[in-house]
């Protein structure tokens, strides 16, 4: 869900590729600096509801996100997910 929105927000001229890593909460963006600035990219992500180093999403947009995408509050799913992944790796060693 989050990925869809972030990738769609970065579907603009100058951005060659955009990927969203849910586990790392990290977006990787490949862009052409002549056509788009880093600030603009950060602004686009913030406009989609996700705070970045430079910009903060408006509360209006942020509150419209699905629960699991509410990174600001350290969304409930995230901590569980990390624990779970550790647990999974234990299983593998069994």
């Amino acid at each position: 869900m989050c990925e869809d929105r972030i990738v769609a927000a970065l579907d603009v001229r100058g951005v060659r590729a955009a990927e969203w890593d849910q586990l790392e909460e990290k977006a990787t963006v490949v862009y052409k600096p002549k056509k788009i600035s880093e600030e603009r990219i950060q602004q686009l992500v913030a406009d989609a509801g996700h705070d970045t180093d430079l910009y903060t999403a408006t509360d209006e947009v942020y509150n419209g996100l699905a629960d699991c995408c509410l990174y600001r509050s350290g969304c409930q799913g995230c901590s569980d997910r990390e624990k779970h992944l550790e647990h999974d790796q234990d299983d593998d060693r069994r």
Binding site: R16, E25, A27, V29, V30, V45, D51, T52, D53, Y71
Partner: peptide, 15 residues
Amino acid sequence: MPRSISLVLAVAAGL
């Protein structure tokens, strides 16, 4: 604690 997502930016010079 408010958290922001991190952006990794790579620069593509042409193709």
